[in-house]
């Protein structure tokens, strides 16, 4: 167990480290995990390797951006609730400032034909990135070889895309199905043991 003294210096260090990590995570998401590992596991040795993996699992299972979730976990582990707030603030500040500036640029340049041509081209690039992501994720689900997962995926897609079913309904139903399936499986396993 690592114990760290909660001084003003520590909070400043937490803020600055999350701020700099966040400022260089372009595109967001999983990119932040290796950066955080390097900083907190290898360099500062505040967190153990195995614990970091658990943090990633929690960050993925909780709602909201992974980057924010992971930094809240690190902050909470090192300096409690105040630490979590400090790291969350450090993580959110760079995108908030940068995107505000980008919005102002966007608002004044979007009618420029060259900028417009660049945006149209980049949109196609982003579409390609999204197709790539979706294919990789779908492959992951198919590889599980779980019929329920496949059914949930297909039905959810049809429900969202063609019938505009509210996302909350889909999340609630699929979460409930997942819980029931797990309970049913563990019950069966328990029966087999007897």
């Amino acid at each position: 167990m690592i114990s760290i003294k909660r001084t003003r210096d520590l909070y400043l260090k937490l803020f600055l480290s999350t701020f700099s990590i966040s400022a260089f995570t372009f595109g967001g998401g999983y990119v932040i995990i290796p950066l955080m590992r390097k900083k907190y596991v290898e360099k500062l040795k505040w967190i153990e390797e195995k614990e970091m993996l658990n943090f990633v699992a929690i960050a993925q299972s909780a709602p909201g951006p992974i980057a924010v979730n992971a930094s809240v976990l690190v902050g909470y582990k090192i300096a409690g609730v105040l630490g979590a707030l400090v790291t969350a603030f450090g993580t959110v500040l760079p995108p908030l400032l940068v995107m505000s500036a980008v919005f102002l640029l966007y608002a004044s340049f979007r009618d420029n034909p060259v900028v417009n041509a660049a945006m149209l081209g980049m949109r196609v690039g982003v579409a390609a990135v999204l197709i790539d992501v979706v294919i990789t994720m779908t492959k992951g689900i198919v590889k599980e070889k779980n019929i329920l997962s496949l059914i949930i995926m297909i039905v959810a897609f049809i429900a969202v895309y063609f019938f505009n079913v509210h996302i909350f309904v889909i999340l609630a139903v699929s979460a409930a199905l997942g819980v029931f399936a797990t309970l049913y499986k563990s019950k069966q396993k328990g029966g087999a043991v007897k």
Partner: peptide
């Protein structure tokens, strides 16, 4: 386990 496929579908 239940949420993951639904999230993929929504994305």
């Amino acid at each position: 386990n239940g949420l993951r496929p639904a999230v993929v579908a929504m994305i």
